[in-house]
Design a protein around this nucleic acid. Structure first.
Lengths: 340, 340
DNA sequence: ACTCCTCATTAAACCGGTTTAAAGAGGAGT
DNA sequence: ACTCCTCTTTAAACCGGTTTAATGAGGAGT
């Protein structure tokens, strides 16, 4: 409760000027080693930690990074990606004394408003650009705002920002090959909204791999990554005159919901219908039957993104893109040979 | 990209002093209306927004609130509470120009370290104390750190902080009465870790209601709120010589995992076994069979908590506790009459 | 002994706001 | 015409750091 010590207190105690304390703290050359020791000792005795606020003002940095997420429960709630991603980000930030500022955009406004607010308030030194879209308007906006960023996934247009990528395709290819290997020929897909880069990446990998096997999709339904969307799409697929014997979902939430829909329709999974998801969310392992899915590592993704963004923020030019180990197939009980 | 205007620019343009601009902006009395208008017009023309950093330094406030969450994927990942809660918090903060700072504590450290860091860095003006524990040591810590807080749930010890509560008991009572009404007499519970206030609240409400019906629990297993824990607990219950005909889980994740475990054991839910959860998470509605559960409103919880914490932060003394509408029962297909 | 350099240190300005104490301008009262 | 008040406005200090330009102290060179 007693007032925290300031740099002036430390200077007084060490018998030097404020400037010297600042130099010592920041390891600037030009101070005698003995003086540095004296200052650091004094700082230590007083338990002094430089004020973030003062530093922020004088060096014009926020020492914080920002993440904008949409309030839409569909995207936000129970999405297994963000929590782990955030944990990975924090694991980097905490070692650097940085903070993570969350900006949730509410239903009424556009996601861009979130970035605008962060920039306007100068709350952060850089932001993560997640759920990248095709011709993503946010890239131009951030350039305009002068806010450094890192994109999660590689944008298709020009981008001045480094990209941290995790290739979804090998996992998708593996799922399709797994299904084809089991003997399926009537395979359908529930894709994510085509506006998202990762949704179409998974989607085209799916179609291409099928084509390579001489097959084509029974149908491609578009879901919105929510459980409700998964249910809808599944019902449409099952109502087809010749329904698929296997369905590949663009994420686990839709897959688990689809699993429920199939069971509710009286189908046995996997005997009547094989189901595969994407994400390897916590529940994937524990539903019945266990969900065959594709596992990425959002924690590492967060780490890599934070490190990369910090290089940009630190003024590093030409920060290279980072490519993470690709997502890989996890086979569980929800996939089996098709019915005869 | 051009430098953003400062208060000095506005002052110059309006032909007044910096101080007057500050007064006008903050609606301080003592300025002629005409002057205020002139200043606001100048500010508007320049598109000036006061610098948060400068304001932070001079008024010693961060204009931000903090939320500490543990990195433990068990608590963090796919927990339906936090995302919605955070959205509610943000809906209040965004109207006040405040930010939400997330502090994730990594595996190696204690949750207290998270609060300590937030306080040390003076990053926030107050924090949310979630997942309250019995004799929660964080309350003393925050008092010591001089960091204002609001507790989510009412602590059992003394606390100088207002509490925002959402009574889980009515929902729990309703679940038990629902099961008893269906004819169940062999009811078991998978409780949360007893260290948590909300876990024991649900647990004792469960036992008390059973007792009021002249019954006692077949067994009470303790889970850890994770899907894996739900599986474990369920297996133990099903292995009992006289297994329960209904299981009440302290959260949906354990319940959905338990549902999977029961189905994997060859049981039909709800014919052989009724299952009820708690949270009404997104998937609860879509698994098969739909999960009977208890619904709270984490978004409102977040709103109320943010508003209450802000009152404390603003220096309001004796901020009253806030009681939210209680959680309520949602009946779906996973509960039915017990087997004969 | 005197100049010149280098190295260590400091005083002061600065970041962009808020706040306090004091000054200035009018108007009323006598 | 002079004093006294009230209402506006401002100059300057302050928040707690960083940074630049200047100063001071030794030591080497001649």
């Amino acid at each position: 409760m007693t007032k925290r010590p300031t740099i002036a207190d430390v200077a007084r105690r060490a018998g030097v000027s404020k400037g010297s304390v600042s130099f010592a703290l920041n390891g600037r050359p030009g101070l005698a080693q003995s003086t540095v020791d004296k200052i650091l000792a004094a700082a230590d005795e007083l338990g002094w930690r430089p004020s973030n606020r003062a530093r922020s003002l004088s060096v014009s940095k926020a020492f914080a990074l920002g993440l904008v997420i949409t309030r839409d429960p569909a995207v936000l709630s129970s999405d297994p990606f963000f929590p782990a991603f955030i944990a990975g980000v924090e694991s980097v930030l905490s070692t650097r004394g940085q903070a993570l500022v969350l900006q949730v955009v509410t239903a009424g406004e556009s996601e861009e408003d979130g970035y605008r607010r962060l920039a306007q308030d100068a709350r952060v030194d850089g932001v993560f650009l997640s759920d990248l879209r095709h011709d993503d308007p946010r890239i131009g906006l951030l350039v305009e705002l002068g806010l450094p960023a890192v994109t999660l996934n590689r944008p298709d247009g020009d981008s001045p920002f480094p990209a941290v990528t995790l290739d979804d395709r090998p996992g998708t290819v593996a799922v399709v090959e797994h299904l084809v290997g089991l003997g399926h020929t009537r395979i359908a897909q529930v894709a994510g909204p085509p506006a998202f880069v990762h949704a179409t990446a998974r989607s085209t990998a799916f179609t291409d791999t099928l084509a390579a096997a001489g097959l084509e999709p029974v149908a491609v339904e578009t879901g919105d990554f929510t459980a409700a969307g998964g249910i809808e799409a599944t019902r449409r697929l099952l109502a087809l005159p010749e329904p698929p014997t296997a369905i590949f979902y663009a994420n686990d939430r839709m897959a688990i919901a689809g699993l429920g829909a199939a069971q509710a329709a009286g189908l046995n999974v996997p005997d009547d219908l094989s189901i595969a998801g994407f994400d390897d969310s916590e529940l994937a392992e524990y539903v019945h039957p266990g969900l065959t899915t594709v596992r990425a590592d959002p924690f590492r993704f967060g780490e890599a993104a934070a490190r990369t963004l910090n290089r940009v923020v630190d003024g590093d030019t030409d920060v290279p893109d980072v490519e993470l180990p690709p997502a890989e197939l996890v086979v569980r009980r929800s996939t089996a040979a098709p019915p005869l």
